[in-house]
Design a binder for these strands. Structure first.
Lengths: 159, 159
DNA sequence: CATAAAGTTTAGCCGAGGTTACATTATCAT
DNA sequence: ATGATAATGTAACCTCGGCTAAACTTTATG
């Protein structure tokens, strides 16, 4: 009557290298979730760094505009980043990076550029490369980043 | 005394092609956030599809194990997916994909495999490719995916 | 056939990240 | 000097995706 009358007890799992495979997949999901969580703070410090370079200071109104988000969201997030000692600011004043924040920002900036360069070298348009990199950059392992760098260098030399 | 005594009014933005640049960046962030939001449902339907292929049915306890998450989280999520008509199930019974869910699952399966193949062709180890793909796959545009496919094909022919 | 074990659901908590509406502060211009 | 306006902050609310604890259903078994 109901669409399924399947048993509620577990079938014995296919017993090849199954356990390892399962574990690897669960790890992949967990890793991805962890990276998603770190994404916001990486984006914020990177953006603050950009703004300081471009106009000498970072202000929440500009951050909100660039992120495509309300200023309230920015306010809430930067409070959290301050608690984590990545940034520092006084009420109604501009935002600055702590040394810790600055080093994170620099790492992110480098990685971001590498991903963009890689995608471009692969033949992706500047526009798409910029958009995709924003999503991808937080999920590339050191190993993959290295392979990307190698490819970019070769491709440039070759052409 | 306070670390910053910078003005609270906006400086005129650097006026080159600034407006476009700003818009592009905000778009990149928005796109990335949108993809993050879609990530869960894509992962779930893909996983359900896998389980059905492997053992004929998808059950929440297995999903929880593969995702590395508690079974309660799975229960809550699948309720949402049912509301979105991606899956279908009765209480205490196995889970099935609706046509809509099935087509999403197939798209995701293809994309996932393509990203893994690409990373492998690039020289990344199987293990890292699997983990990174889980994060990356949700953020590749059609254009980038196409470039990846092209590269994978060439590289295979070449070697 | 009663009951234990496995699986599923419900209730309630939390933090992240988003919103609107409203309050406060700083700066600029008259 | 003060008043308008831009920027920032606060309050209250939402959804999503985690969690634990406890209740309930199904299935297997002694």
């Amino acid at each position: 009557m109901t669409p399924s009358r399947k048993p509620a007890r577990r079938k014995p799992a296919p017993s090849r290298s199954a356990a390892e495979q399962e574990a690897l997949r669960a790890t992949a999901f967990r890793t991805s979730r962890r990276h998603n969580a770190a994404e916001t703070e990486e984006d914020y410090v990177e953006l603050i760094d950009d703004l300081i370079r471009e106009r000498g200071e970072a202000r929440s109104v500009d951050m909100a505009q660039r992120l495509g988000v309300s200023h309230v969201t920015v306010a809430k997030t930067i409070r959290r980043l301050r608690d984590k000692e990545l940034i520092q600011y006084e009420p109604y004043r501009a935002i600055f990076l702590t040394p810790k924040g600055k080093s994170l920002a620099e790492r992110c900036r480098g990685r971001h550029q590498q991903v963009v360069d890689f995608l471009t070298a692969l033949g992706v348009s500047t526009r798409a490369a910029e958009v995709d990199a924003e999503g991808i950059e937080h999920h590339v392992s050191a190993e993959t980043l290295d392979a990307m760098r190698r490819f970019t260098r070769e491709r440039r030399k070759g052409s």
